[in-house]
Amino acid sequence: MTRLLAILLCTVPVPALTHPHIFIDTGVDIILDESGALSHLKITWTYDEYYSLLITEELKIDQDFDGVLTEEDIARLTGFDMNWVPGFNGDLVALLDEALLDLSGPQQPTATLKDGRITTTHVRQVEATPSLAGHILSLRAYDETYYTAYDVTLPVKIKPASICTLDKIAPDIDGELEQMRQMLLTINADADLEENEIPLIGAKFATEIRVSCPAS
C-alpha cells in the first residue's frame, strides 16, 4: 500500500511535496504484566531491499553476499537504527484514551538479514505501567514528514493472550489524497510549501492499532 501511495504522491504537481524514501514493514508485540497492565512494546521493523543494501554496504557487512552474517557482522548491524536524537519518539505514538503515553528509549536491540532485507527489533518500556481495563490503547507507527513509510504488515500480538480485542484500522487513503489534491490546487506550483503552512502528512496515512479491554 505504501509503495503505491508513494507513486501517487509523486504525481501531485508540487515539486517540493515529500514522499517516502524508506519503506518499513512493521509489527508490534503488546506486552502485559501479570496484572494485565501494559508493560512493554516490542517493535519489529523490516526494511526494504534498497535501504537494506545501502546499510550493509555502509557498515561493510556480508561482504561475500551470501546472506549469512558473521558474529562481527551482527555486532555491527545490531543497533544501527537505535541512535536516536533526544526527543525522538521512535516514530511511534501511543495513546491511552487519547492521553499520550511516555515510552522509554529503545532497549534490547536485535538485527538479522534475510532475503536481502534487514529486520530489527527493539523493546520500549511503558512508563507508569497503565492498566488497560476499561480503556482503549491506540498505537500508530509513522514518520510525520513521510520520509519513512511504515506499513503494518507484520504480526501484531498481545502477549500473553488476553480478553482484550485488537483491531487494525487502515487509513482512508483515497479520501486523504483527495483532500491533499484539493489543497494543493489552491497553491501556485512555484510556491514555498512551508510558507503556505502545508501540514505534515505522515499521520494521515498511518494504520491505527487499537486495543480495547473490558472493565474489570
Rank of each mutant, 00 (worst) to 15 (best):
V123L: 15
G87S: 08
Y142M: 07
T120A: 11
Y146I: 13
F80P: 03
I74K: 14
L139R: 02
T78W: 10
A99I: 13
D102H: 13
S162F: 12
W84Q: 04
P160D: 08
L166Q: 07
D167E: 14
I158G: 11
E144I: 07
D143N: 10
T120Q: 04
H135E: 08
T120R: 02
S162T: 14
H135S: 13
A141E: 06
D143T: 09
E127C: 10
A128G: 00
D97V: 05
G134P: 06
T121G: 09
N89M: 11
T148D: 04
T110H: 00
T120L: 10
L113A: 05
V93C: 12
A128L: 13
D143E: 05
P160V: 05
K157G: 08
P109I: 03
I118H: 07
T145V: 01
V126T: 05
T153Q: 15
T145D: 12
K168F: 09
L103H: 01
I136C: 10
D102G: 12
I169T: 12
L101M: 09
D167Y: 10
D115W: 12
S104L: 05
Y150H: 12
P109A: 04
R124K: 13
S138T: 15
Y142V: 01
V123M: 07
T121N: 05
S162H: 13
T119N: 11
G90M: 00
L166F: 08
A133M: 05
S162Y: 10
S131G: 13
D73G: 06
R124I: 08
T110E: 05
R117Q: 15
N89P: 12
L132H: 03
L96S: 00
T145C: 08
E72P: 06
T78S: 00
T120C: 12
I163K: 15
Q108K: 15
T120N: 07
V156D: 01
S131L: 05
T119E: 12
Y147Q: 03
G79H: 11
V152L: 12
P155G: 01
L139H: 00
A111F: 04
D102W: 11
W84L: 13
V85I: 15
L139F: 03
L96Q: 10
L154C: 03
C164G: 08
R124L: 06
